[in-house]
Design a protein around this nucleic acid. Structure first.
Lengths: 225, 225
DNA sequence: ACAGAGCTGTCAGAATTTTTTCCGCAAAGG
DNA sequence: CCTTTGCGGAAAAAATTCTGACAGCTCTGT
């Protein structure tokens, strides 16, 4: 298990300590000290995980978290000073993957990083009859290959990574295109249409992609009562 | 889909304490005291998350974890006695989603549960039998989905965010429309009407939205004398 | 380099769903 | 008793999604 870990932390000593332990744990730590640099850093370096301090100069950790979530599913672990803050954070539904309270032992941090990476780093998605194998670039439903194109695969991957969660068109576009390309909203519709068609051919009658009027799209398997 | 949590824990006092906190956090706790009953319980009850103590009579927590993983992807949080054990656990790659060390504060547990659950679905507002999940854009009452439209959802969200508080029609409109759009006051009535209808269909006889003559509307659960 | 095939992004109109308005009647308040 | 306010049904208006066609692009094999 290895991976680039971006540490967003203004206390240099702490950051170095963390980096040190992470390196010993087989990771490749990166560091940025202020909030402003964090988002571009995520964009450019594409780390495998972000350790994000909540208290930062320049920009609030919560805002950074939300911004990152607009274009990336990279796992985020929030670091906060007080236990009580965790409840509040969770209430806000920021989309972080875990929370750690100061003071912490660096070994605990490494353990958490491993835990989060293991559960989100899965290269394949399996849900009901659907299998998405990223390495093989292969999507199949009930054993039938879907023969998706690149965009379609990515789209399905994003949607299926969180069944039930709704993605707006702009969120989908942000994630499909790493560059900030401007494409029409209807483009998403078009790909959705093709995706649905291929799914329908592979498993007639099975609706996996649902549109929510004025909100976006979601992936979810129909559950018959 | 509100949040069934299965607690696998042999210390009854601890289990009850946890159950209590989880209930307050809006979850529906289930409990099983021995390892043997855990796996069938997961099969039958299909909980949304499992809190699994590592030290159990009858069967080892690690074995249970592996068994569950054979047929289910339900999120599992392991509870262990010592910090040092975590590293070992992680090395074993059991497939648990998180680890908590004893002694822990119940509120920390609830926080972790929420954090882990959010991946598969997050509840933002919970009040009595009502659940509003923004990420899934799903509102449910006593487990029955309300199938709301965008405006209806927003409206209910505003009202339910402060039970008992009265909102005037113009306040509601201001919050529903980010732009300063001009619509008739009666529009709100219309949405309220539909909201009530859907609520009535989901839970007959339950009145959640009340009108205050010449003032506005409020959300409040009836309390029987 | 060229042709052909398949992939992407755009567009306009049809289809669908939601939002808003309208109207009459009943209920509430003074 | 009279005016204002709330409610239900239904239709008009608006917004959103779906669909099929199409042009430009990329990739592949020749």
């Amino acid at each position: 298990m290895s991976g680039k870990i971006l540490i967003v932390e203004d206390e240099l000593k702490l950051a170095e300590l963390l980096a040190d332990y992470l390196r010993k744990g087989g990771f490749e730590p990166l560091h940025v000290a202020d909030g402003l640099g964090a988002v571009p850093m995520v964009r450019d370096e594409k780390p495998d995980l972000v350790l994000l301090d909540l208290m930062l100069p320049g920009k609030d950790g919560m805002d950074i978290c939300k911004e990152i979530r607009n274009f990336s599913n990279v796992p985020i672990i929030m670091v906060t000073a007080r236990v009580e803050e965790i409840d509040r954070l969770i209430g806000l539904e920021l989309g972080a993957d875990d929370y750690i309270c100061k003071p912490f032992s660096p070994r605990e941090v490494v353990a958490r990083v491993k835990a989060v990476l293991r559960r989100s780093g899965a290269a394949t998605i399996q849900d009901q009859g659907l299998t998405l194998d990223e390495a093989r670039f292969n999507a199949s439903l009930h054993g039938v290959s879907l023969e998706l194109t690149a965009v379609e695969f990515k789209l399905l991957q994003i949607l299926a990574s969180s069944p039930g969660r709704i993605y707006s068109r702009s969120q989908l576009m942000d994630r499909i295109y790493p560059d900030e390309r401007i494409v029409s909203d209807r483009t998403i519709d078009s790909h959705i249409k093709k995706l649905r068609k291929k799914i329908a051919e592979a498993a007639p009658g099975e609706e996996l992609i649902h549109s929510i009027y004025s909100v976006g799209y979601k992936y979810e398997v129909e559950t018959q009562p």
